[in-house]
Simulated scan of single mutants.
Amino acid sequence: MTPEHAALIDGEPLPTARVNAFLEAPAGHHEHAPARRQPEAPSLARQRRRWATQVIVTDELARRACADRGLKVPEEASPLSVLAVAETDVADLGSIVAAALAHSPAARTLLAALEAEQTVPETAVRDYYDLNRDRFLTPEALRQGVDPFGETTAPEDLLPYDTARDGIARELRRAAGRRAFFGWLDRARSTVVYSHGHEHPGDPSHPDHEHRH
C-alpha cells in the first residue's frame, strides 16, 4: 500500500501525490532519471520513485528556504516539467541535483542568491589565471602549438589578465555558489524522514540502493 506522504519535512507531510505527478509527467522530461524500459523491472521502478522523491524534496526545501530569505520565486506555466538538463551539469552536479534545478524555480532562485553572496578574492582570481595559462592562450598561440607553461612563452601569447579577469571571477563565483548550494542541501535534507519506498536511491539500508546523485 502506497503511503499518503513520501516524506516528513519538519514534521509536515510531503504528499505522495506530488511525487506521483512528477513521475507521470510526459515522457522526455526526466531524461536523467534511472532509465525507463518496457516492461520496467520492479527494482528499477522503486529506484525511479526514490530518485523522483529526492527531486521533489529538494524543490520543497528550496521553496521553504526562499520563503525564509524573502526571495520571490517566479511562477512557471508547467511546474512539473523538467527543462533540458545539460550532460555537463549532470557530470558536475549529479542527476538528482541537476534535475531538481531544472524542475524547480525555487531551487534556481536559491542557487542564484547563494552565488550572489559569494566573494571571490582578487588573489584567487590571479592564482587561477597563473595556474591555468593553457586556458588563456590567444588563438594565434593555439594555432602555433605554443606551450603555455614553457620558458619561451611570450606575454603576447596569452590573453592579458585584465581581459580574462571578469570571466574568471564569474566562474569562481559560480563554483562557490554551487558548493554553497550543496552544503545547504546536505544540511536541509539531514532532518527529512522518508516513508518506506521513498528513501534516497543511495541509502544502503534498502536492497536496491545505488550510489547516484
Rank of each mutant, 00 (worst) to 15 (best):
D208Q: 07
E140Y: 01
R173W: 10
T191P: 01
T163Y: 12
E87W: 12
E115K: 15
A100E: 01
E75S: 15
H103M: 08
T153K: 10
A98G: 11
L158D: 00
E60R: 05
E4Y: 12
P155W: 03
V19D: 00
E122Q: 10
P121D: 09
G150Y: 09
L111Q: 06
T152Y: 13
L8R: 04
D68V: 15
T109A: 09
N132E: 13
L111R: 07
P26V: 08
A84C: 13
V57Y: 00
R178Y: 05
H196A: 14
S104A: 09
Y161V: 12
A35Q: 11
E140R: 03
R48P: 01
R108V: 04
L172H: 05
R135A: 12
L83Y: 05
R126I: 05
A86E: 08
A180R: 00
A169N: 05
Y161L: 15
I56A: 01
P3Y: 07
N132G: 12
N20F: 11
E210H: 03
A91T: 13
A112H: 11
L61R: 02
V125N: 00
A62M: 02
L23Q: 03
P39N: 05
L142K: 09
S195W: 03
M1F: 10
F22N: 02
V73P: 00
Y129V: 06
R179P: 06
